[in-house]
C-alpha cells in the first residue's frame, strides 16, 4: 500500500485556484521529485500536505490514516494533530533554523519538547536528554557536521545550515520527508553538498518528496517524477518516461528549456 496518497486536492487563494485537483501516490522507500515552473503550485502542494495551509477539498492519507479529509468535519484533537504532524517532515527552502540555538540544539529542541510528555520523563529526564543529544549528534554526523554541533546558524555557511535543518527534520523520525527547493537559496557551489546528503538518505531508503529545479539530480535520485503545470499534474512517470519520452507538449517544452541552458 502507498505510504502517501493525495486525492483530488484543491486549494484557492481568494479567487485564484492554485491547486486544481491534485492526485498522486507514493510508495514507501521511494523518492518522488516534483518539477515545474515557478508559480505552478509546488510549494502550495507541499504546504497543504504539511498542514501549513489548509486545503479546500480532497483527501491526504499517510500510512493508511487520513491527515486531511475535506469531506469530514470531524474535529481532530490536539494529540491527533500532533501525531499527524510528526508523520511528515519538511525542509524549507530558506532553512528557518532557530538563530539563538546551536546546530545541536536546533536538532534536539523539538525532540526534547516532545519527550516531556513521556510517562517516564520525570524520573529519567537526564538519561532521556542524554539519549536525545546522542541522537542529535549521530544525525549531525550523518550530514557531515559533527564538528559544528556547537556553532550557531550565523556561523555556518548556507549549505551547512541546510544540512542542519535536514538533521532537525530527521530527528523526529518522520515517515516521509519533504523538501521544498532545498538548494534554491544556496550559491551554486554549495548545492552539491545538499544533494549528496539527500542521495545518502535515498540510499538508506528514506521516503522523500523533493521539489527541485535540479533536473540532473531529479533524474538520478528519484524513482518517480511529477511535472506540475498551472495547478495540475501535467505528467507523471519514471525519470526515463518524463525526461526522455515526455508525452505532453508542455512537459517537452519545460524540459527542453532546461537542457538548453
Amino acid at each position: 500500500m502507498a505510504i502517501l496518497e493525495v486525492k483530488d486536492l484543491k486549494k484557492s487563494f481568494g479567487k485564484t485556484e492554485v491547486l486544481k485537483g491534485i492526485s498522486f501516490s507514493l510508495e514507501e522507500k521511494n523518492v518522488l521529485a516534483i518539477i515545474g515552473s515557478s508559480g505552478s503550485g509546488k510549494t502550495t502542494l507541499l504546504r497543504c500536505i504539511n498542514m501549513l495551509e489548509t486545503a479546500d477539498s480532497g483527501l491526504i492519507t499517510v500510512d493508511g490514516s487520513a491527515i486531511f479529509d475535506g469531506d469530514s468535519d470531524e474535529k481532530l484533537t490536539a494529540q491527533q494533530k500532533l501525531e499527524n504532524q510528526l508523520k511528515i517532515g519538511l525542509v524549507f527552502q530558506s532553512f528557518n533554523l532557530f538563530p539563538q540555538y546551536t546546530a545541536l540544539e536546533n536538532v534536539t529542541l523539538a525532540v526534547k519538547a516532545h519527550a516531556k510528555s513521556r510517562p517516564d520523563f520525570k524520573e529519567n529526564h537526564k538519561a532521556i536528554y542524554k539519549e536525545i543529544d546522542e541522537l542529535g549528534m549521530s544525525l549531525l554526523k550523518k550530514v557531515g557536521l559533527e564538528n559544528k554541533a556547537n556553532n550557531y546558524p550565523c556561523q555556518l555557511s548556507g549549505g551547512q545550515q541546510q544540512r542542519v535543518s535536514i538533521a532537525r527534520a530527521m530527528a523526529l523520525n518522520p515517515k516521509i520527508l519533504f523538501f521544498d527547493e532545498p538548494t534554491s537559496a544556496l550559491d551554486p557551489e554549495l548545492t552539491g553538498e545538499i544533494l549528496k546528503v539527500i542521495k545518502s538518505l535515498a540510499a538508506e531508503k528514506m521516503t522523500m518528496v523533493i521539489v527541485t529545479h535540479e533536473m540532473a539530480f531529479a533524474r538520478e535520485a528519484a524513482d518517480r517524477i511529477i511535472f506540475m503545470d498551472n495547478g495540475v499534474i501535467e505528467e507523471e512517470g519514471t525519470p526515463e518516461e518524463v525526461f526522455d519520452h515526455p508525452k505532453s507538449e508542455r512537459t517537452k517544452a519545460f524540459i527542453a528549456g532546461y537542457t538548453e541552458v
Partner: peptide
Amino acid sequence: GQYEAGQVLGLTKTQTFFK
C-alpha cells in the same frame, strides 16, 4: 518561517512562542 518551523516540528503555538 520561524513559526512555521515550530509548527512542522510539532511544537504548539505556546511552545513556539516561548522556546
